[in-house]
Design a protein around this nucleic acid. Structure first.
Lengths: 210, 210
DNA sequence: ATTTGCGTTGACTGACCAGTCAATCCGCCC
DNA sequence: GGGCGGATTGACTGGTCAGTCAACGCAAAT
C-alpha cells in the first residue's frame, strides 16, 4: 500500500484518472472526448471515473485548478522578490512556457479548454483566470509607481497585452503554427518580454543603460 | 420579389438564417446552440436551415469566412497606404475594435467559437487565421527593414503579441471582465499600440520625436 | 471463516439533437 | 388553369454519450 504503486494496485487511481484525462482531453478535445476514453486511457472501468469525480466537468475543473493555483502562487512569489519589473515579467513568462515544455498536454488542455474557452467551460473560472491578470497588473502598477515603467498605459491593459502575447505564442505551438523546440522556448521568453517592455519603435536605446 | 423584403417574403431567408445564427451562437455558444434555436430565432422552419446550409458547421463557417475575409482585405489595404508602421497597426486595431463595437455578437462568435477555439472548430480555419498574423508580420518586417522599427524581435512574434493583445482585450469585453464603452474602445486602440510599439520600460522619450 | 464496506466493474437508460425526407406551398410560365 | 420546380415545413430516425446502479472483489477486522 505504501508508495511506489505495486503494479497499479490500490494506489492513486484518482491520480491515474486525472493523468489519463490530460492525455484524452489533449488528444480529442474536451467535448469530443468520451468518459470512456478517459477510463480506457487510465486502464480503469468506466464507472470508476464517477467514483472519484461527480462529472466529466469536474475532472477538467480539477486539472485546471490544480495547475492554475500553482501559477498564481508562483506569480505571487516572483513578485515577492526584489527584482526589476522586467525580470519579474521574464520569470512569469518563463514559468508558463516551461510549464508547457514540461507537460505540453496539460498546458494544451488548460489553455484550449479553459483559458481560451471562456464560453462553454472557462466561464466558471473567469474569476480565477482574472486573478492572474491582476497579479501581473499589480507588478506593472508598482513599476510605474517607482518610475521604472512609463505610465502611458494602464496596468490592466499592459497585463492583458503581456498575458495575451504569451497565450498566443503557446497557442501557436499547441497547433503547430509556430516552430517549437528548446531554442524557440527561450527565444520566445525573451521576445515576449522585449516586445512588451522594450516596444517596437526604433527611437530608443536598443539596450537599457545599466 | 424586389428588394425591401415585403413582410418577410421571398427575400433573403439565407441571410436571415445567418443573422439569427449570430444571435443564437452568441447567446448560447455554438455547441450548446441547437439548430432549432437558429430556426426559431430566424422565424423559419427547422428544415430550411438545411436547405441553405449543409450542416450547422457550415453556418458558422460562412459567418467566419465572410467576416475574416473582410479583415484580411482591410489589413492588406491599410498596408497599401504609405503610413508609418505604427499608424498601420493603429488602423488595424481600430478596424477590429470597431467591428466589435458595430456588431459585438458577430465578433463574439468569431473570436470565441473560431479564433480562440482552434480545437473543436477553428482547426479548419487555422490557415486562414494565420494569414492575418502574416500580414501583420509583413508590416512589422518592412518597418524593421526601413529602420522605423527595431529588429530585436522577430516580425512573427511581434505580430503574435499585437494580435494576442487585441484578442485578449476583446475577450475581456465579451465576458464583461473589462469595462466597455465608447471611451474604452478608443482608449484600448491607443493602449494596445502604445504597449506594443512604445513598450513599458521607462528609459526613453515618452513621446517619439517628430 | 465470516463479515463489512470501500473500491471497482460495465451493462444499461434516458435525454438530447443533427440531419433526413416526404409532404405541402406558391410563384411563374405555358 | 394546369403543371413545373424551387422554397418551406416539421415529424421522425439514428446514433451518441453522460451518468446510474446493482453486483462483484478483496483487504482488513473480528
Amino acid at each position: 500500500m505504501a508508495s511506489s504503486a505495486q503494479r497499479a494496485g490500490g494506489a492513486d487511481k484518482r491520480r491515474m484518472i486525472l493523468d489519463a484525462a490530460v492525455v484524452a482531453f489533449a488528444t480529442r478535445g474536451f467535448h469530443a472526448c468520451r468518459v470512456s476514453d478517459i477510463a480506457d486511457q487510465a486502464n480503469v472501468a468506466y464507472g470508476l471515473v464517477y467514483h472519484y469525480f461527480r462529472s466529466k466537468d469536474e475532472v477538467l475543473d480539477t486539472l485546471f485548478l490544480e495547475r492554475w493555483n500553482v501559477l498564481l502562487e508562483v506569480i505571487a512569489e516572483i513578485d515577492g522578490h526584489p527584482l526589476p519589473a522586467r525580470e519579474k515579467l521574464h520569470a512569469i513568462a518563463s514559468f508558463i512556457i516551461d510549464s508547457y515544455r514540461h507537460d505540453p498536454d496539460l498546458m494544451k488542455v488548460i489553455i484550449v479548454e479553459v483559458t481560451r474557452a471562456a464560453n462553454s467551460f472557462g466561464r466558471t473560472h473567469l474569476a480565477k483566470i482574472r486573478e492572474a491578470y491582476e497579479l501581473i497588473a499589480d507588478i506593472v502598477g508598482k513599476a510605474q509607481a517607482d518610475g521604472s515603467f512609463r505610465s502611458e498605459v494602464t496596468p490592466t491593459f499592459a497585463a492583458l497585452a503581456f498575458y495575451g502575447a504569451i497565450e498566443q505564442v503557446l497557442t501557436g505551438w499547441i497547433f503547430d503554427t509556430l516552430p517549437q523546440g528548446e531554442a524557440e522556448f527561450d527565444q520566445a521568453k525573451a521576445f515576449i518580454v522585449e516586445t512588451i517592455c522594450g516596444g517596437l519603435d526604433a527611437n530608443r536605446p536598443s539596450t537599457r543603460p545599466v
